[in-house]
Design a protein around this nucleic acid. Structure first.
Length: 771
DNA sequence: ATTTTACAAATTTTT
DNA sequence: TTTGTAAAAT
């Protein structure tokens, strides 16, 4: 594709934004206005037309998936060898990459661990316990939120102590020791060689501020900077971008104030509202033509968002057809809501021949997915849930990962605590407490304390336990040696086996245990896949370090794969940002659910909820359905619900309000007479108890005790060479070889799309395909 | 040190 | 309803 070709595909406003390559540029991009297209072509244009070196372009996106897709599109214009040099990714992943290079400046090891929310909570919990504070007053969650807020505002523990206002705020909240906890938390993370998500930003900022030569280096490298979803940047991100752009001034931010929905994690909508004040001679472009949605949807969304006070003026319009009115439907209960949605999807799928991937069900809270899942499953409608408990957060997966983490960075205290006695080694809480005391006293990590027999002795740990600890240390050390030679897959496989975890899981024959075992297999598969991919790439890195780096910053939105074709998407509205679907169901439009209870206190919060609804509505291309239930299960109790105020805020001419008659004689399934209702409820019980009692697998393989696994059971193990088979995830393939026998029988399968895989037949959910 | 039992708490959204 | 934590028992 040459210059003329891609410029021709743009409308005047888009084209102007693409061609304005110098100086500060702000693009206000209404929903569905072709923002990604502008960003893509702008970068391609820089490289292709202005001969800018791809190494000098930094592009910060909202998800890594978005970055990957954009890179592919750019590659098609400028060629893959050039495109691969682009710096593209989320703030967190790009800055983690920089921090790995520069970590010694800040006193961190370059293989620092990235703590997720769970690790963070555990550290805080430990500190609260050690200082014997009342955790009714110092709620770990609120402490974590508070610390996160400090970091996003770039406040250090020292600055905290110097600020009377902050100290008073916490004293007023009966938490006068907040500053001490904050300091202890930072200290502990530092000693563990670990950064949390906020640290990735904060430390990048500190790095650039304290070391002018580092700043100069990156200023000089990133001569063209682009920031997507600028309305969702926080203060730290704002300052980092500003610092980096300070030399060349070629900064282009793209965003939509109407879609700012991340204030709760520190995003500051003022960043976009004040951009013109912050930079000189800003060129502003407004993309107001919506290419995505029908006139009805655009009109409805406009009428809704006009209720917000804080916004930049813009007029989103569309050339598309008027389309169907938006349906509002009231149901009796949350289960009923699920049935309605499932029935509508089924009907539309059958009568209009819409594939299942055309549908999305969006909700405010993850908890709402349950009712939807039940209903979809009952109708055998395939679906995929995004978010919720992700694969990498599952307990058993984190256990294995903790061994990996400890191998890479033995100072990682949370990983240490997690696995030092798992599988059981006779090292219990008492020992751990003693270790903590001595580590704190000496100002070293627990690991370092374990390496020093003198310290163990002085901690009052008895001889047998000392030996156990030393055995553990030796074991981890041996893994470390292995990482010097082996690739991620070799090391991971060895660790999983020799740590005893595999044995631990395989001994458990309960359905939960089997599911856990499968998840570990799945994890090792993904290590294998990663290793192989890295080996194929020219300068790929197949080490375990690289794998863990990849895993740490994977986001829920990043994980979609090919096998999501033909599936209905279920996700929170937050996760739906940036996506679009022909038909969208927004469920649970009830007061104190959406808008959420927490947001009803202040106008600013309420406006954010309204923007959230705006985002939800504008995901729809052709049709939108809004549902609300009269009753809903919450906290295990049935509660009454009022329709959301947002429903009244949409201009009526776009609406089609169904006021269904709830007598048992009308609609076939919409409302259920009480007898059937209770019968259904009792019928539900046994199935629910069949579910793994641990958190049900939300993302990858969901264990479905009923249909699938039993249905094809005979077909699983007796495949033969040359046969055509179908795998849930990998698609179609041909069996090329068999290995092992009995329960360990494996098949080597050449898949049409993903190449050769070796699968344990016991677990691979294969289907025979008749040629 | 580990297992069992009982009881409380939880639901906003995520990198 | 489910999940996690604290106390009590082995």
């Amino acid at each position: 594709m040459n210059v003329e070709d891609y410029l021709k595909q743009l409308n005047p406003a888009q084209r102007a934004a693409v061609e304005a390559v110098k100086g500060p540029v702000m693009v206000i991009a209404g929903a569905g206005s072709g923002k990604t297209r502008v960003l893509t072509y702008r970068i391609a244009h820089l490289i292709d037309y202005h001969q800018v070196d791809a190494f000098q372009v930094l592009s910060l996106t909202f998800t890594n998936k978005a970055a990957r897709e954009m890179k592919e599109r750019i590659a098609r214009i400028v060629g893959p060898s050039e495109a691969k040099n682009l710096w593209m990714g989320t703030f967190h992943s790009v800055f983690a990459r920089i921090l790995r290079v520069e970590s010694d400046r800040l006193g961190y090891p370059s293989n620092f661990t990235i703590y997720d929310t769970e690790d963070q909570a555990k550290v805080i919990n430990n500190i609260i316990k050690e200082q014997s504070l009342d955790k009714e007053i110092y709620k770990p969650k609120s402490v974590a939120r508070r610390i996160s807020a400090f970091k996003n505002a770039l406040i250090t523990p020292e600055e905290y102590q110097r600020s009377p206002e902050l100290r008073e705020q916490d004293a007023a909240a009966r938490m006068p020791l907040m500053g001490e906890i904050f300091a202890a938390y930072n200290e502990r993370c530092f000693r563990s060689g670990a950064m949390d998500f906020d640290d990735l930003l904060l430390n990048t900022y500190m790095l650039l501020r304290k070391f002018p030569d580092v700043l100069a280096k990156y200023q000089d490298r990133f001569r063209y900077i682009m920031v997507d979803e600028y309305q969702d940047t926080n203060h730290a991100q704002y300052l980092i971008v500003k610092a980096l752009a300070n030399r060349y001034g070629n900064i282009c931010v793209v965003g939509d104030d109407a879609q700012s929905i991340y204030a709760f994690r520190g995003a500051n909508i003022k960043n976009i509202l004040n951009f013109q004040r912050d930079y000189e001679d800003v060129q502003v472009f407004k993309l107001e033509q919506n290419y995505r949605s029908s006139k009805t949807i655009v009109g409805a969304a406009n009428s809704l968002i006009s209720k917000n006070k804080d916004q930049l003026h813009k007029e989103v319009w569309t050339d598309n057809d008027a389309g169907e009115r938006i349906t509002i439907h009231k149901t009796v209960s949350d289960n009923d809501e699920g049935n309605y949605v499932a029935r509508m999807i089924f009907e539309k799928h059958m009568t209009n021949h819409l594939p299942y991937e055309s549908f999305a069900i969006l909700y405010r809270t993850n908890a709402q997915s349950r009712a939807m899942e039940d209903a979809l499953r009952r109708k055998n409608i395939p679906y995929r849930i995004y978010g919720g408990l992700s694969f990498y957060q599952r307990k058993e997966v984190k256990d294995v990962l903790a061994y990996f983490r400890l191998t890479i960075n033995p100072k990682d205290e949370e990983a240490f605590r997690r696995v030092v006695n798992y599988p059981k080694r006779g090292i219990g809480d008492t020992t751990l407490d003693k270790l903590t005391v001595v580590a704190n006293r000496e100002g070293v990590s627990i690991w370092e304390a374990c390496q020093n027999p003198m310290l163990l002795e002085s901690a009052g740990i008895n001889r047998p336990t000392q030996t156990k600890l030393q055995d553990f240390v030796t074991k981890i050390e041996s893994y470390r040696v292995l990482t010097q030679k082996g690739d991620a897959f070799e090391v991971a496989g060895h660790i999983a086996k020799s740590s005893g975890l595999i044995r631990e899981f395989s001994e458990d024959k309960t359905p939960e245990g089997v599911s856990r075992y499968e998840n570990i297999e799945e994890l090792l598969n993904s290590v294998k896949e990663f290793t192989e991919n890295q080996k194929e790439i020219e300068d790929g890195n197949p080490s375990l370090d690289a794998f863990m780096e990849d895993v740490a910053l994977i986001t829920d939105a990043d994980k979609g794969t090919e096998d999501d074709k033909h599936k209905v998407s279920l996700m929170t509205i937050h996760l739906a940002k940036g996506l679009e679907f022909p038909v969208v169901f927004i469920v649970g439009l009830e007061e104190s659910l959406f808008p959420s209870m927490m947001s009803m206190g202040s106008r600013a919060d309420l406006e954010e909820e309204r923007r959230l609804f705006y985002v939800a509505l504008t995901r729809a291309e052709k049709e939108a359905y809004l549902t609300h239930a009269q009753m809903r299960y919450r906290w295990g109790k049935l509660i009454d619900c009022e329709p959301s105020r947002f429903l009244e805020e949409i201009d009526e001419r776009y609406l089609n309000i169904l006021t269904p008659d709830f007598s048992p004689f009308t609609g076939p399934d919409t409302s259920l007479p009480s007898r059937r209702r209770s019968a259904e409820n009792t019928a539900r019980k046994p199935r629910t108890s069949l579910r793994p009692s641990s958190a049900p697998p939300k993302n990858l393989k969901r264990v479905r005790p009923t249909q699938e696994s039993e249905g094809n059971f005979e077909a699983l193990t007796n495949v033969e060479v040359g046969e055509r088979v179908k795998h849930q995830r990998f698609g179609m393939g041909t069996v090329s070889d068999l290995e092992g026998s009995g329960p360990n029988k494996k098949a080597i399968i050449e898949f049409d799309n993903v190449g050769e895989k070796k699968l344990l037949l016991k677990f691979a959910k294969l289907e025979r395909v008749n040629a």
